[in-house]
């Protein structure tokens, strides 16, 4: 049987990759994708703990998270579409007008 640590380390690596992508990538589409990665890292943790404790609540949470993530991506892409229409770019560096 694969030990629980392996799953957790895998989720942590996945989360770190996502965080790294959010921090360094300037293309906001990629940033959105990286956010998805981080969410899924959290989902894996939910699933793992659910399986190891035989408690289904974790799996219920994962379904809810996927739903929310889908809505989030829809809203996010709509915002980017409008940003592209008004600013002509979706680079994070170019979308810095809402500052003091």
């Amino acid at each position: 049987m694969i030990p629980i640590e392996a799953f957790l380390i895998f989720a942590a690596i996945l989360f770190a990759i996502g965080a790294y992508g959010v921090l360094v990538k300037s293309n906001t589409i990629v940033v959105l994708m990286c956010i998805e990665l981080m969410l899924n890292a959290a989902n894996i943790n939910f699933i793992v703990f659910s399986a190891f404790t035989t408690d289904v609540v974790g799996q219920v949470f994962v379904i809810m998270t996927i739903t929310v993530a889908a809505a989030e991506v829809a809203v996010g892409i709509a915002i980017l579409l409008n940003a592209y229409k008004t600013k002509g770019t979706i680079e994070a560096d170019g979308l810095a007008s809402m500052r003091w």
Partner: peptide, 17 residues
């Protein structure tokens, strides 16, 4: 403090993380 609000999403994320 307002100097920290530079409008760059990635620096905000960096601060959060």
């Amino acid at each position: 403090l307002s100097k920290g609000q530079d409008g760059d999403v990635r620096s905000y994320t960096g601060v959060v993380i």
